[in-house]
Computed example of a mutant assay.
Amino acid sequence: MSSDQKHTISVLVENKFGVLARVAGMFSGRGFNIETLNVGPVHLEGLSRITATILGDDQALDQALKQLNKLVNVVEVEHFTEGAAVARELILLKVSADSKTRPEIMQICDIFRAKVIDVSAESVVLEITGNDSKIKAFLDLVDPFGVQKMARTGVVALERGANS
Rank of each mutant, 00 (worst) to 15 (best):
V125Q: 06
S120I: 07
T51Y: 01
A97K: 00
L158W: 11
L71T: 06
P103G: 04
F138N: 03
R113V: 14
L71R: 03
S133T: 08
R152I: 01
Q67E: 04
L158Y: 11
C109I: 07
K16S: 04
L47S: 02
V23F: 12
E104L: 07
F112H: 09
V124G: 03
F32Y: 10
F80D: 00
Q5P: 02
S164A: 11
Q107S: 13
Q59C: 03
T129C: 02
I111V: 14
I9T: 03
A157T: 00
S164R: 13
T36S: 11
L65W: 10
A162P: 05
N15G: 03
V116L: 10
I9S: 02
D140W: 07
V74E: 08
V142H: 06
A137D: 15
D140N: 14
V77M: 04
I135C: 09
A64L: 10
Q148M: 12
V75F: 15
I91R: 07
E122A: 09
N73T: 12
L141E: 12
V125R: 08
E89F: 02
K70F: 14
T36G: 06
I117N: 09
G161L: 02
T53R: 15
R49V: 02
E122G: 05
S123K: 02
T129W: 06
V142C: 03
G40M: 00
L71K: 02
V19R: 12
A97Q: 04
A24W: 05
I117E: 13
K94A: 05
G31H: 09
H7N: 10
R30Y: 11
G56Q: 05
L20N: 01
F32R: 01
G146R: 06
G154E: 05
